[in-house]
């Protein structure tokens, strides 16, 4: 009798949600174009319906296949009523174990110990960057892959992934561009760009920041020693770390008695950044101007960014106040009843 599914082995690792693999959907020229005619779902005996043919049946599971083989051979195969875990299949097979996903490999290594649960907060006010990891600001360093050669192309197919600055309208970092636009006054973009250059230069030459553990930065942030050499990441990290998750919408008169109803509303990533940038710029313009000359605003903005990273800035209190209010106003959210 082959071993049954080991339930305890999956107890923790099942919770893992693998990241969607970002991959270029390689389009083959040989792909069959979908049929142009559409049929109703309940059409009787449509011409193309091959779902009942034996060839369209799904491939049987390993265990079922093994059971059938055993039946033919006249032996006792595995019990088909229970599934066979992959761990059992690859047990002792080093080659196959290498091809397992990382989680399962880790689970194999860990054995039967269950890791302690992490985190004690009932709700989280942290956010992680959803789709991509931290942008390291390196250009042209990813391993390039070439598309398969397709005959009939006039020019060579591009190497993938496409370079970050490949599109003329989106060649600059989105955060830098957003900060520049918010720095701009009276439509003078080149002045704003010069200030932005001053900000980046100041971040680049300032000493390594010391992180305040009471003000945690974004999860997955690089160590502070990496920041000055990558000023764009420095800037992004400062902005994203203090960006509020929501705003409080006051609905007039909805609370009764002429009171406004405080309703938390989620913000998109760009909106969150915009709020954070405006807080930071406001704090920077209130800073004491110790120098003179045209670069002083850029320097103050950069000093404010550094104090955000070091957890000294008052912007953190502002964000915490918004979050606190948001948690209090959760009660005002009325979700539609479930039927």
């Amino acid at each position: 009798m082959p071993p049954r599914l080991n339930v305890s082995a999956f107890s923790r690792s099942i919770a893992f949600r693998p990241k969607p693999q970002v991959q270029w959907p390689a389009r083959s020229a040989l792909r069959v174009a979908p049929s142009q005619t559409r049929t109703y779902a309940d059409d009787k005996a449509p011409a193309q319906d091959r779902s009942h043919k034996p060839s369209s049946e799904p491939i049987e599971h390993v265990s079922e296949e093994a059971a059938k083989t055993a039946q033919i051979m006249g032996e006792q195969g595995p019990d088909v009523n229970q599934g066979t875990p992959v761990e059992d299949l690859v047990k002792g097979d080093k080659e196959a174990q290498k091809n397992l996903p990382k989680v399962m490999q880790d689970a194999l290594k860990q054995g039967k110990k269950t890791p302690a649960p992490k985190g004690s907060r009932s709700y989280s006010t942290m956010t992680t960057r959803s789709n991509e990891g931290m942008d390291m600001g390196l250009v042209d360093f990813e391993a390039v892959s070439k598309l398969p050669v397709t005959p009939g192309l006039k020019f060579e197919a591009p190497t993938l992934p496409l370079p970050k600055d490949g599109h003329v309208k989106h060649r600059y970092d989105p955060v830098v561009e957003q900060v520049t636009n918010l720095l701009m006054r009276h439509g003078k973009k080149s002045v704003a760009q010069r200030q932005m250059a001053v900000v980046l230069q100041h971040l680049r030459t300032s000493p390594i920041p010391t992180i305040n553990p009471a003000r945690p930065l974004l999860a997955g942030a690089p160590p502070p020693s990496h920041l000055p050499l990558n000023p764009v990441l420095y800037l992004t990290l400062a902005i994203d770390s203090v960006a509020p998750l929501l705003r409080i919408r006051a609905i007039k008169g909805a609370a009764g008695g002429g009171m406004a109803l405080q309703m938390p509303a989620p913000l998109s990533q760009r909106q969150r950044r915009r709020t954070a940038i405006q807080w930071i710029l406001g704090a920077a313009s209130k800073r004491r101007n110790t120098g003179s000359g045209k670069n002083s605003l850029g320097q103050r903005v950069a000093q404010e960014m550094i104090s955000v990273i070091e957890g000294k800035s008052g912007v953190w209190d502002r964000r915490n106040a918004v979050h606190k209010l948001g948690v209090a106003a959760r009660a005002n959210i009325v979700l539609p009843k479930r039927r």
């Binding site: 680049r204 030459t205 000493p207 390594i208 000055p228 110790t290 120098g291 003179s292 000359g293």
Partner: peptide, 14 residues
């Protein structure tokens, strides 16, 4: 202020 504006920095520790 002027000294700060005219300061010559010849090294970047980073």
């Amino acid at each position: 202020r002027k000294a700060q504006r005219k300061r010559i920095v010849l090294s970047n520790n980073n």
